[in-house]
Simulated assay, not measured.
Amino acid sequence: MSNRHIATRDRGECVLGWWQRSDQFDWFSAYLRDRGLQVRWRMATFVFTVFLVAVPVVLIGSPAGPDGSVQTWIVIAASVSAFTASLVWLFRWPSRAQSLSYSTVCSVSIAAGCLAVRNPYAGLMGCTMFAAIGGFVAYFHALSHVVANLVVAVSCAAINAVRMFAEMDDIRMVAGSAALVLGLNLGVPFGIHTLVHSLHIDLRDSDRDPLTGLLNRKSFYNMVRDLIAARGQFNTPVNVTMVDLDDFKLLNDTHGHAVGDAALVSVAAVLQEHTEPGTVLGRLGGEEFVIADVDAAARHAVTAERVRRGIAATPFQITASFGICSTTVAAGAEIDHPGFLDRLIRAADAAMYRSKRAGGNRVVHDRLDIPG
C-alpha cells in the first residue's frame, strides 16, 4: 500500500470519526505548549473574560439594563462567577475539567445577562457573545459541547426575539437581528472546529516515516496520547509492543539495502494487515517498529502473535523479536506525557531484548504498575 493510499485512508477514517471525537484538549494544549503559546492564550482568555463580565455590570442603572433588584443581583452573581472561573487561566494552564467548567460558567453567565436586561434588543445583541465562548470550546473540546453552547445561544436569542417583536412589532428588524446572532453562533464555532480538526489531521499525516508510511516517533506519541485521552472517563488498558527484526543487518549485507527497504515495507504491511482498527503503528528507526492499543492485554498478545507469524511468512525469510508492556490507566487520571509513554516503551524494549537473547522470533510479556 502506498504512502498516499495510507494517508487517504486515514484521512477518511478521521473524517468519519469526526462526530465521535470525544475531546481535543490534550493534543491542542500540547500543540500550544510546544510552540510557546500557552501564556498568550491564558492571558487572552483572562482579559476576554474581564471584558465579558464588565458589560452587564456597566449596564446596571441604565434604562436598557437589568429590570429590578432581583435581575440586578442575578447579573452581579453571573459576572462574579465568570470572573472567578477565569482566574485559573491567570495563574496556570487548566486541566480539561477546569476548562470545561470555565466555558460552562461563561455560557450560563451570558444567558443570565441576556435574559435579565430590560431592553430585548440589548439582550438579543448580547447573544453574540455566545459565539466567542463557542469558538473557545471549538478549539479545545468536543463537538457535542459546541452544540450544547449553540442550543443555549439559540434559546436565549429566541426568547429575546419574541420580547423584541412584542415591543416593536417590526418583524424585519427582529428577523435581521436574529439572523446576525444565529450567523455568528453558527459560523464562528463550527468554522473553528473544522479548522482545528483539519490541522490535527495535517499535523499527524506530516509526521510519517517516508519509507513505510507508518507514524514516526513524535507522531506516534501524539496519537497514543489522543487514544488514551479519548477514553479518559474509563479505566483504560494500554499496551505497547516493541518489534525488532532479527538479523536484519545480515539481510542488508547479503542482499543489499534495496531488498532491506523492501523487507521493511513488507513488515509495515503485515502490521497494518494483522492489527485491529484504531491500533497505533509506528517505525522508531532502523528495523524497530512499535504497536500500541487500548485493548485488553490478552487480546493484544493474540494480535502480537498474529503479527509475529505474519512477519515470519514474508518472502524475505526474516523473523522478529517482540516485547510487550501492558498497564491500566485509572479513570480520570492525569497522565504525564511524554514521560508515561517513555516508561512503557522502555519496559517493552527491555522485554524485546529478553526475547532476542532467548533466540528471537518470540513474544515476551511485561507489565508496568502505575501507583494509584
Rank of each mutant, 00 (worst) to 15 (best):
T279H: 08
F48K: 03
A298D: 13
V259F: 14
F190Q: 03
G134M: 01
K249L: 04
H255S: 06
P338I: 06
D209V: 10
N149E: 09
G61C: 06
Q38S: 04
P63C: 00
V329Y: 14
E305N: 06
I76N: 11
S29Y: 10
V270K: 04
A175T: 13
G278E: 14
P315F: 14
A268P: 10
A263V: 10
Q272H: 08
V88D: 13
T84M: 11
V57H: 06
R11Y: 15
E167N: 08
S144V: 08
T84R: 13
A142K: 02
A350T: 11
S29K: 05
L184M: 13
V174F: 12
V15G: 01
A179Q: 12
D226G: 05
A64Y: 14
S326G: 00
R362V: 10
R11P: 05
G260N: 06
D369N: 07
R306L: 06
T49L: 03
S206I: 03
A348G: 05
M164L: 07
D10L: 03
A112I: 00
G360R: 00
R172H: 12
K218M: 05
R308F: 10
T279Y: 15
S62Y: 15
D207C: 05
S29H: 04
R172S: 06
R40F: 14
S2K: 04
N119D: 13
W41V: 05
L59C: 01
L368F: 13
H255T: 08
V53A: 11
L37P: 01
R346W: 15
G36F: 07
I133M: 00
G123R: 08
V162Q: 13
R309H: 08
Y121G: 08
A85C: 04
V188E: 10
G359Y: 06
G286C: 12
K218W: 15
D295A: 03
D205N: 05
A178F: 15
S22H: 12
W27A: 03
T194E: 00
G113A: 11
G113D: 07
N252I: 09
F130Y: 11
L16V: 02
W89A: 09
Q98A: 08
A179K: 11
V329K: 07
V146F: 07
A331W: 15
V105P: 00
A158I: 09
D10S: 01
P237R: 03
I76M: 03
R354M: 09
L250W: 11
R299N: 05
D369H: 09
G256H: 15
R163N: 11
L250N: 13
C325Q: 10
S62I: 02
A64C: 08
Y102A: 04
A78T: 05
F234I: 01
D246K: 02
V75Y: 13
S99P: 04
S326Y: 06
R4Q: 14
A269P: 02
A347N: 09
